[in-house]
Every structure is written in structure tokens, then in C-alpha cells.
Design a protein around this nucleic acid. Structure first.
Lengths: 194, 194
DNA sequence: ACGCATAGAATGAATATTCAATACAAAAAA
DNA sequence: TTTTTTGTATTGAATATTCATTCTATGCGT
């Protein structure tokens, strides 16, 4: 925690943030390291002091963003036994996180749909979801949620939030609070037991 | 329809198919034109006889695949007034098309999530959905489907199919017919009026 | 003075695109 | 039927650019 360490963190963070912004805007292939350096306000060589390669830089960034997302997801979780309430909370948390951090969202979506990085790297970071997965399983045991494979319900709910966030962020449809409420209800209806 | 024309079509198709396969496997940035040429069995220069640039090649490919998808979506549509039946049919059509053409699916997903190509190019090809959009609007008018913005319901349903297809294609979860039925029911429950 | 941090030019490998030369198929002429 | 002509299709080497990465020199805090 000394000053030296702070500085390190500063530049490292600047590099990560520049990478995120540029990749969101231009895509993987179109963001050269030189551009990252410029935007981060460092020399190209400096990047290689913190990351051994472009690939490692991108993987590290992915891991950090996934972790941040996991944290945002769990905010203000009452931990009550009301499955529906918690479900709405989690949905809103994730949606709000995406809207408040569009760069992170853009990067994560590109990463998830790109063969640029190994499948293994993608799976390594699923751990951050665990509390929510547990929550979903609990909902099933309590007979509130449908008995589905964990992979299926996770993918469906996550995909739902992503779809709504994309509408808002792309400007295709303004997601008012009413519409968001409607969307969450729709998602809930797709997993709850009737 | 003379021999000359057939030949043109042949090479053009070979180039498009090679592009699709390679991009699905390696991503946009990692598929050089030289690799496309090799896989298509033509010289690099030949590609430029049919497409003015890599970007145009990719855009043309996207347009073709989107059109194919639109056609697959509408197959065997009875056009009956039973909204639920038609909904299940459309869902299954789309899902089956994705599973039967994983390369096309992979390319479309990458394209949709990449800033590589302009937003305009993406929107131009939304026309192929029109019959299904009309169907959804009809379902709302009949009081069977919830009153939602067209953009919202479209995105939600499409995203649902995509999520399930990804599970199957990534090998994360084998989608048996039972699970598919369950998934479609879940999607239906998210848009129908209770 | 020591050692990590930073700079930025240099390097070497790729890459998209161009271009001049060649093959080819169909029509025209002989 | 043969020969010539014509325009398109195809090739693949050459070009000019771009990029990830390396390396040597310099800065700077302790």
C-alpha cells in the first residue's frame, strides 16, 4: 500500500480502462496496443511491464469485469426467503450495472461472443455467479421456481437482462421504469411455477 | 444462366462459405484474406473480383445469412389463428435452423456483437423478420400476448432462442427434446397474457 | 547508488489490397 | 470446321501499411 504500489495501480488501471473503452468502441482487432498506450497516457512499452501480451491484458480485464459484475449483482440482497423479491432485486442489480457501465457491458458481450479467447478462460470466471446460482437452486427446492437444469435457467435469465440492456444502450428502445418492471415480470413468469 | 454465370456463382459461394467458416472459428481479426482464399480454393486476388473489400465481403455474407434465417423462420407456418401453436412453430424453426447451421449461427452472433460493422448495416436486414413481427402484433391485438413494444418482445424472444442454442452448441448442456419443449414453454409464459 | 518504472524508437512478422500477366470461354470471322 | 478476336476470370507476387513485441536508454523514488 505504499506510494510506489499506488502508482503501479494507477497506470495499470489506466491501461485496463483504455483497453476496455477502445475495444468496446472499435472491437478487438481494431484496437492496436499503440492506441491503448496513447489513450492510457503511457508508452507502448509500459503496457508490457504490466501485461505480458495483448491476450493476457484482455483476459485480465475480462476477469476483473466479471468480478465487478458479480459484486454488483449481490448488492442489497436482503437474503430473505422471498424468492420473488430477491429475483427482482438481482435482475435490477444486473440491469442497472450494465446501464451504468456501458463500456464494461460492451466489452463483456464482445468477449463472450468471440473465439478470440479460449473457452477455458470464459469458464474460469463463472465462480462469481455462484451465490445467484445457489439462490436459483433454492427457489426450485422451495417449489417456487421450475425444475430446470442450472445451466438453462442461468442462461435464460442472464440472456434476458442482456437483451433488455442492449435495447436501452443501443438506443433502439428507451427502457422506462415501467417497461423495465414489465420486462422483469416477463422474466419472472418464464421461470416461476404457475 | 450460362456456364460463365454458373462459374461466377460457384467461386463467389466458395468465398462466402470459407469466410463464414473461418470467421466462426477464428474471429474477424484472425482470418486474413489469404486464409479465406486458401480455404475457398482461389487466389487472393480473385476475392477482389467479387467483393471490393473485406468489409463488403462480411456485410454481404451477413445479409445472405440473415435472409436465409428469415426463410427458415417461416417454414411450415400454418398461418392459423392459433397464436400459441404458431409461436411454438416459429421458436422451433429458429432453434432448429441454428442447430443445423452452427457456422451461420456463430458468424451472426459475432457480427451482432461486434462494432466491426456499422449499426446501419445491422438494421438494414431487419426486414426479414417482418412476418414474425406482424404475427406478434396480431397476438397482442387478439389479447393473447402482452402489450409490449414490438422491439422489446422481439428482442426477448430472439434472445431466448439464442441462449438455448448456445447452450447446445457450446456443449454446456445437451438440449433434449424434453428440455427444448420446456424452454419454449418458458418463453411462451414470458410473453402470453396470464 | 540501486532497482523498478517508463519511454519510444527499432524490429520483424502479418496483412489488405493492387496490378500486370495469363488463362479461358464465347462470339465473330474466315 | 478452323482461326481470330475480345472481354472477363484468375492468378500470385509485389506493395505499402500496420501491428505486437522487444530492447536499450533514461528517469525517479528510496
Amino acid at each position: 500500500m505504499n506510494i510506489q504500489y499506488m502508482k503501479i495501480t494507477d497506470k495499470r488501471e489506466a491501461i485496463l480502462q483504455a483497453t476496455m473503452q477502445l475495444i468496446t468502441e472499435h472491437g478487438f482487432h481494431a484496437t492496436p496496443m499503440s492506441m491503448v498506450a496513447k489513450q492510457a497516457g503511457v508508452a507502448a512499452g509500459t503496457i508490457y511491464h504490466y501485461f505480458s501480451s495483448k491476450e493476457e491484458l484482455i483476459n485480465k480485464l475480462y476477469a476483473e469485469l466479471k468480478q465487478k459484475m458479480g459484486a454488483a449483482l449481490l448488492q442489497n440482497d436482503a437474503g430473505s426467503s422471498n424468492i420473488r423479491e430477491r429475483f427482482f432485486r438481482f435482475y435490477r442489480n444486473l440491469y442497472t450495472h450494465f446501464i451504468q457501465h456501458p463500456d464494461e457491458f460492451g466489452f463483456l458481450e464482445q468477449y463472450a461472443n468471440s473465439p478470440y479467447i479460449s473457452q477455458a478462460s470464459k469458464e474460469e470466471n463463472q465462480q462469481f455467479y455462484k451465490p445467484v446460482v445457489d439462490f436459483l437452486l433454492q427457489g426450485m427446492e422451495m417449489g417456487v421456481l421450475r425444475g430446470m437444469e442450472q445451466e438453462l435457467i442461468t442462461a435464460l435469465v442472464y440472456g434476458h437482462v442482456v437483451s433488455v440492456a442492449k435495447l436501452q444502450l443501443s438506443g433502439q428502445l428507451e427502457i422506462t421504469d415501467t417497461r423495465l418492471q414489465q420486462a422483469i415480470q416477463s422474466c419472472w413468469d418464464s421461470v416461476k411455477i404457475n
